[in-house]
Design a protein around this nucleic acid. Structure first.
Length: 399
RNA sequence: GGGGGGUUUCCCGAGCGGUCAAAGGGGUCAGACUGUAAAUCUGAUGGACAUGUCCUUCGAAGGUUCGAAUCCUUCACCCCCCA
């Protein structure tokens, strides 16, 4: 593409933060921008009110206008980290489709848009067929109409910005082609679509999903440390693809990283670099630093010589419990400490953990269920760091 | 309407009067080995105090018995077959 083009991707505001599943679309827009083209990020203030049935097995709950706006407000700064909104002619553009869809009257929409879309085409879309074939869930007229709105978005963006290309995950194929068809019927122009496969991990699970939920881009939902850890722990088989898709590193650099990883997998140079690049991109230098500092402590030796303030920063994610200082005076049994901290749900479990060698105070293994804790076990002025197993931490603060 | 089968600890699933807190598998948790991985191996897996006892648990409620997850009665739910 020698001349500057305009390309768009849509983001539905279903939550107040984007997550790892949105990285692909954002990176594609970013690449286009780096190549001199103009990206448009559309947040679906209107479509989000309806709910996209694509890839969804069940009818969605409707969100209130206020909730949608709050979600959009949360997503916007995240998009800004990936796209440059102030760089001259190819500055990124952020628009909300409520601007144009919200104004439509029902009759007007039916006459101007609906008239040009054959129902048999709509029915043939995978997103619709999949839902109709199931007999345990239905598909409301509302969700059925979703694709018309997204189709019109494309037409609108073409008219207003000259946008000719829409990108998205492969689940968006039906919606994108609906837009292309609509543009052709309405004004005879040829628009284009491009989808990328939904990234799955080698174990078949969706990228960015863990047992405990999605990996979010907002620090409130997923701390920089947890975000960083997600990439550190990524399977070897997935790390190459992620480096290519999600970082700005060049092909040569990625190849050499992978070669390095190949020759010494134990160092996980590739995962570490991926974690660094992505954490910096999403959380900035400060976020990256705090994640790395926490990593050092979490996977380091015995914790000592740190003050409460440092500990509070490093263990920001870790649940903590305040206890009266007096508890320590007579000595606090390690069993009680584990239960009080919430690491163990009862004393039997605490005994088990200790007996099996999984109980740590300040990263130092505690042997024997008779152990009692006192002032000497504090890591800071008032803080004691308990750990059950490899990675499960809790703080006790004696005030 | 008639007949039969089922409901067990997080899940699946054995147990069919005492030796049952209940086999086995899965999951989960811990440990070892590792690369904060995978695979593998070991151990743990109702609770309370304590290393042995007590308390709660086998759909629900009653009953028989020295003693029941196991037998009987009623109820609830599920499945199958014949009408």
């Amino acid at each position: 593409m020698e001349k500057q083009r305009t390309v768009y991707a849509g983001f539905d505001p279903t939550a107040d933060s984007l997550h790892v599943g949105h990285l692909m679309a954002m990176m594609i827009l970013r690449r286009f921008q780096q190549a001199g083209h103009r990206p448009i990020a559309v947040v679906g203030g209107a479509t989000g009110m309806i709910g996209d049935p694509s890839g969804k097995s069940e009818e969605r709950n409707l969100l209130s206008l206020d909730a949608l706006q709050a979600n959009i407000d949360g997503m916007e700064p995240q998009l800004r980290r990936f796209l440059d909104f102030d760089c001259g002619p190819n500055s990124a553009v952020l628009v909300n489709n409520y601007e144009w869809l919200g104004r439509f009257g029902y009759l007007e929409f039916l006459r101007d848009i609906g008239k040009h879309v054959p129902v048999n085409v709509m029915l043939a879309k995978d997103s619709v067929r999949g839902r109709l074939e199931r007999d345990d869930v239905g598909l409301s007229y509302t969700e059925f109409s979703y694709m018309l709105m997204q189709a019109y978005d494309f037409v609108h963006l073409y008219e207003r910005f000259g946008c000719e290309l829409q990108v998205g995950g492969s689940d968006q194929w039906g919606n994108i082609t609906a837009g292309i068809d609509l543009a052709r019927r309405l004004s005879g122009v040829q628009l284009y679509g491009c989808t990328c496969p939904l990234l799955t991990r080698s174990d078949g699970t969706k990228m960015g999903k863990t047992e405990s939920g999605a990996i979010w881009l907002s620090a409130e939902r997923t701390s920089p440390y947890q975000f960083h850890q997600y990439w550190i722990n990524l399977d070897d088989a997935d790390v190459g693809r992620c480096l290519r898709f999600f970082t700005d590193l060049g092909q040569e650099e990625i190849d050499s990283l992978l070669a390095e990883h190949q020759s010494d997998p134990g160092r996980r140079a590739a995962q570490r670099r991926l974690a660094v690049e992505l954490t910096r991109m999403v959380h900035g230098e400060d976020g990256l630093r705090s994640a790395e500092r926490a990593t050092e402590v979490f996977f380091g030796a015995e914790i000592r010589e740190l003050d409460d303030a440092q500990l509070a920063g490093i263990f920001a994610d870790v649940p903590s419990k305040e206890l009266p200082r007096a508890k320590l005076d007579g000595g606090l049994s390690i069993i009680d400490a584990l239960v009080l901290s919430g690491l163990c749900k009862n004393k039997s479990e605490a005994r088990r953990i200790i007996t099996q060698g999984g109980a740590y105070v300040n990263n130092r293994r505690m042997e024997g269920i008779e152990t009692t804790l006192d002032q000497n076990h504090l890591a800071g002025e008032t803080t004691m760091i308990l750990r059950a197993g490899k990675k499960k931490y809790a703080l006790l603060r004696f005030v």
